[in-house]
Amino acid sequence: MSEGIKKFLYVNRKAPHGTIYALEALEVVLIGAAFEQDVSLAFLDDGVFQLVKGWDTKELGSKNFAPTYMALGDYDVSKIYVEKESLEERGLSEDDLMELTYEDEDDDWAEKSSIHIVSREEMARLMAANDVILSF
């Protein structure tokens, strides 16, 4: 890793529609991706609700930004960590989540999953291992 590149972790702890945090976080991540830093995303607590598939916001009258999570791979954001305990507490499992993928340049552009399910303890270590934490 070359000098000047920092490890950024975006921590998402809010559900998608109740506040503007989720959409704002997503936009900041996409804008920040232009700076070519080492970016990871963490989803814990109510943040795991952001990645649940099958949103339909038509009746709500707000923008359906679920498809935008699918663009993260295009923006070279390929490390998405989701906390297992947060999922379980909410009656969810990995099968309930959107399939987020990226194409691995070093492996003949093979399509790979960006989602990693981690334990609470692994999540704590992940936070400690990053240089900058941005909370939403």
């Binding site: 991706a33 359906n64 498809p67 935008t68 699918m70 663009a71 295009d74 923006y75």
Partner: peptide
Amino acid sequence: DEYQIAPAIRV
């Protein structure tokens, strides 16, 4: 239409 965003130039 697919992603609900206009891509950055690099993308």
